[in-house]
Design a protein around this nucleic acid. Structure first.
Length: 271
DNA sequence: AGAAAATCCTGGTGGC
DNA sequence: TGCCACCAGGATTTTC
């Protein structure tokens, strides 16, 4: 579920509410993708200062250390002063003086990882190879074009890899390529500079609109205050195999790339 | 080396 | 209704 927009919407939905909160208890359920990296007791009495984001990671700045949270494929957070007893898929509760932050993740591809600082090898391993932030001013066109020229693989695969630009998952890669008129299978190195510029704009447009819409709720995503997203309603290609293109009525195609479904319009995406 | 599968999990869906 | 194969927002590890 969670690509950049869902993670950012989640961040905004509890960042202010948790700021300044002091950890009073930690409850863990089943193991997640990676170990916590410290004893739960080590988190007690630490305060949460800010909630940031890098790619699809949430970065909770503690007064000493960082908590990195990834939602994986099926994760979502809740933050509330009162929560029901944890269910089978509630695998992490951070109980604080201002409420409980709870990670629900049926597939357990997500993770909560503590590091003392961001130079810690564990943090570097997780965050070190991440590409540019697409919604920041640092999303540099020249670097984007240069990066595309380095890869002989399909442009969609380069987007998903996250080493050039972060946060673009399967939904938003498909949507961005549609907006830019680019065939997802095209070799990244063969993209014209002009098309690459259009793709950069398309990514920014799609992601920022998705954030405004509260993200995409395909099955069960909601932000930490329980609100679903609505971007899926305006998807141009994702999940629309066989349905008419919203722009030219041609049936949307679906193919497999790297084991993932790719949706595109064979008429609108020719480059 | 670099790119495609396999992998980690659980749940939902569609076919028979 | 039951069973089974297949699919799903991600990202690392293994295999060609």
């Amino acid at each position: 579920m969670p690509e950049l927009p869902e993670v950012e919407v989640t961040r905004r939905s509890f960042a202010d509410a948790i700021a300044g909160a002091v950890v009073t208890a930690v409850r863990r359920g089943k193991p997640l993708r990676w170990p916590l990296g410290c004893s739960p007791d080590q988190l007690l009495n630490k305060s949460v200062q800010t909630v940031g984001r890098r790619g699809k990671y949430l970065l909770l700045a503690l007064d000493r250390g960082w908590l990195l949270v990834h939602l994986g494929m099926s994760g979502s957070l809740l933050f509330a002063s009162v929560l029901p007893a944890p269910g089978v898929h509630d695998h992490f509760d951070l109980v604080t003086t201002q409420g409980t932050l709870r990670l629900n993740d049926p597939r357990r591809f997500g993770a909560v990882v503590f590091v003392d600082n961001l130079a810690d090898p564990v943090a570097v391993k997780l965050l070190g190879k991440l590409g540019m932030e697409p919604l920041s001013d640092g999303f540099d066109l020249a670097l984007f074009q240069q990066g595309m020229k380095c890869h002989g693989t399909a442009v969609k695969q380069v987007l998903l890899a996250g080493e050039l630009v972060v946060g673009v998952g399967n939904i938003y890669a498909c949507e961005s390529l549609f907006l830019a008129g680019i065939r997802p299978t095209l070799s990244a190195a063969r993209l014209s500079f002009r098309r690459t510029a259009l793709l950069r704009e398309a990514i920014r447009d799609v992601l920022s609109r998705a954030v405004e819409q509260g993200g995409s709720t395909l099955r069960d995503f909601s932000s930490a205050d329980g609100k679903p997203g609505y971007f899926q309603l305006q998807a141009m290609v994702y999940g629309r195999a066989g349905l008419p293109c919203r722009r030219c009525q041609t049936p949307i195609k679906v193919i497999r790339q790297g084991g993932r479904s790719t949706f595109y319009c064979p008429v609108c995406q020719k480059f």
